[in-house]
Computed example of a mutant assay.
Amino acid sequence: MEFSHLTHASRLRNQTSAVYHNCLDWSLADWSNAIAGETGEMCNLIKKIRRGDSIDVKDVGKELADIVIYADLLADQLGLDLGECVRQKFNEVSDRIGSNIKV
Rank of each mutant, 00 (worst) to 15 (best):
S54A: 12
L80Q: 10
I101E: 05
S27H: 05
V60A: 06
A18C: 05
N44S: 11
L24N: 07
C85G: 06
W31A: 08
F3D: 07
D66E: 04
I49S: 08
G37P: 02
L78H: 01
V57L: 14
I97S: 04
L45T: 02
I46K: 04
R96Y: 00
Q88P: 00
A71K: 05
K58T: 11
W26R: 08
G83M: 06
D81R: 07
Q88F: 01
I49F: 12
S99H: 00
D56T: 07
L78F: 04
V60N: 03
A9Q: 12
I55W: 03
G37L: 14
E38L: 02
Y70R: 02
C43R: 08
T39N: 07
G79M: 02
L64M: 09
D56R: 07
N33E: 14
L12D: 09
L28Q: 06
A36F: 06
K62Q: 13
E38S: 11
E92G: 01
L74R: 07
I46H: 06
G83W: 03
V57G: 02
L64V: 07
N33C: 08
E38R: 05
L82V: 02
W31P: 01
V93K: 07
F3L: 09
R51H: 07
I35N: 04
I69T: 10
A9H: 10
Q15V: 11
S99N: 00
A9M: 08
D66L: 01
H5Y: 15
K102H: 13
I97H: 06
K48R: 14
S27D: 05
C85Y: 04
S54C: 13
M42I: 09
A36M: 07
G79Q: 05
R13D: 13
N91R: 00
S32F: 12
H8I: 09
S17A: 00
D59V: 13
L82K: 02
L80E: 10
S10G: 03
I69E: 10
D81V: 03
L24C: 10
K89F: 15
D56L: 13
Q77A: 14
D95W: 00
D81L: 06
S17Y: 03
E63F: 04
T7G: 01
A34D: 02
R96V: 00
W26L: 01
Q88K: 11
K48E: 12
I101H: 08
C85I: 12
T39A: 12
A71V: 09
I101A: 05
C85K: 11
A18Y: 08
R11P: 03
V57N: 10
E41W: 10
H8E: 15
V19N: 10
T39K: 09
D66K: 04
E84K: 13
C43A: 15
L6S: 05
S17Q: 07
A75Y: 01
L82G: 03
R50C: 11
K89T: 13
A65E: 14
I69M: 12
N33F: 15
A18L: 12
V86A: 08
